[in-house]
Amino acid sequence: MEQIKNITIIGGIDKSGKQENIKCFDIAQGEIIGIVGPTGSGKSQLISDIEQLSQKDSSTHRQILINGEIPSSELRNNPRQKMVAQLSQNMNFLADMNVRDFLLLHAQCRGKSMKNIDKIIYMANQLTGEPIKPNDNLTILSGGQTRALMVADVAVISESPIVLIDEIENAGIKKHEALELLSGYNKLILIVTHDPVMALSTQKRIIMKNGGMTDIIDSSPEEKTISTQLSQIDQTMLKLREIIRNGQHIEGKDLNQIFPELPVNKKITTLVNY
């Protein structure tokens, strides 16, 4: 597989047919980039342009270069040579087969070892509530189970130097663990997100509006501090979520880690205000 040093997004047009503000943008190996903007602003389309390595042939007319060059047709289409792994927003499988057969087939497509199937199912089960079994039919899996299996599949079988992640916070799976699974060492990662914790964990953010890339901002030093605090709040929220999922009551002590000095009702107000 070719070594990826960087990819270049050459801007195209927005939904009104006007040139995008961002004409050209390089992303280097090891960078984590966020893609943010209102719903319908073209975030998923940007991801799709990169997954397809578009050559001015999509509705946005964007062009994607790899190491400064136009990728070959083989690189664009052959799964064994693909350099892009994508976790889309899909929450259900349409393929009518069981989990094990599906993973075996996919491993075969990507030319990967077929020995890891049980490991993938195990990894997926760390991200979701009720466990997925190898003989379960794909189409009966819940949204969360599907998403967890997709994450584990992308992490192991589609293992690629470029990773595209579309709204990992959806479907109630453990997003931090999922992101960790997908990230790996020195990968080039793009994350579409509405979640402040996710957005602040990136180094730069592409701002989308009306189908076009309007700006690129670096995360500020202040944001890095806020990011740490936000993560703590997020951990508490996730803990509360688990307590509720397990059918238990939430108590004042459950909030104590983040706001030890405040009375309970104030803690909740502070949390809500965040």
């Binding site: 997954e51 693909k82 889309s88 087939l105 990507r110 997709m150 992308v154």
Partner: peptide, 27 residues
């Protein structure tokens, strides 16, 4: 292809090649 996962797209492609090994596949 935008309605299914990347994994399903790749499996679908493999199944086409089983039925017609010589064809060119375009998404």
């Amino acid at each position: 292809g935008d309605m299914i996962s990347q994994a399903e797209r790749e499996i679908f492609r493999e199944k086409i090649l089983e039925a017609n090994p010589e064809c060119t596949i375009l998404d």
